[in-house]
């Protein structure tokens, strides 16, 4: 009754911006800026305050029906509770990994899980080849099967250092430390300026930051 009158219904996961700020690289103001962004994304097709796969695709590709292996994997990893949608808490926690100030360790683990297509705890050679083929399919690049095999083989030699036919997390970390560019997708510079991108409520957020 009275309680609900005082408290407008909020998006699931939005109840604790200070908790989210404490547990991610974002400040409370930035969490609130992300909420503005989240509201747009999560109501773009279905007005329910949750990001559905099609809304995610619409944001990335301006086309709700465009499928992409890697976008699918990112969506699945953002969907921490694995219920088919991304709520605000999942959105903030997952984007936090892409923050320029996030731990490299977290970025490495996220990328590893992304590439572990079948979630076996290892990146397998077949998965690597499947990902290369998926990229070729979406690009103009044409390579013969022999060329693809050669690229995958060479990478595999560098990566599977213990020669057991699969890349485990430790091997992945070694490979990344030798080739830091492999993590370039794991940092989104936009996240440094998120309050500038969504300034409409920054003033009120700053007041609340001081109170907290």
């Amino acid at each position: 009754g009275c309680f609900s009158l005082k408290r407008p219904k909020q998006t699931p996961g939005y109840e604790k911006p200070s908790v989210l700020a404490a547990e991610t690289p974002f400040t409370v103001s930035e969490v609130k800026a992300l909420y503005e962004l989240f509201k747009k994304l999560s109501n773009s097709i279905i007005n329910d305050g949750l990001i559905h796969k099609e809304e995610f695709q619409l944001a990335l590709f301006r086309n709700r029906y465009r499928r992409n292996l890697f976008a699918d994997r990112i969506f699945d990893l953002f969907d921490i509770k694995r219920n088919g949608v991304i709520d605000f808490e999942e959105f903030v926690r997952s984007l936090g990994v892409f923050h320029p100030n996030a731990l490299v360790e977290d970025k490495m683990k996220f990328a590893f899980r992304l590439y572990d297509l079948r979630q076996t705890g290892f990146i397998e050679r077949e998965e690597l080849k499947e990902m290369v083929l998926a990229l070729l399919h979406e690009s103009e690049l044409v390579l013969s099967d022999d060329e693809v095999e050669m690229i995958v083989d060479n990478t595999w030699k560098d990566a599977d250092t213990n020669g057991d036919g699969k890349i485990d997390l430790e091997e992945w970390k070694e490979l990344v430390s030798k080739n830091p560019s492999l993590l370039k997708n794991m940092t989104l510079p936009y996240l440094k300026d998120i309050t500038m991108a969504f300034p409409s409520f920054v003033l009120s957020s700053e007041v609340e930051d001081t109170e907290i």
Binding site: A59, R62, L69, M150, I151, L182
Partner: peptide
Amino acid sequence: CNLNAFDIISYSAGFDLSGLFEEK
């Protein structure tokens, strides 16, 4: 051929999350 398979993959449009931040 020194192309790294993981480098090739990283060019996928699926990794470009900047679309999330663009004005709709």
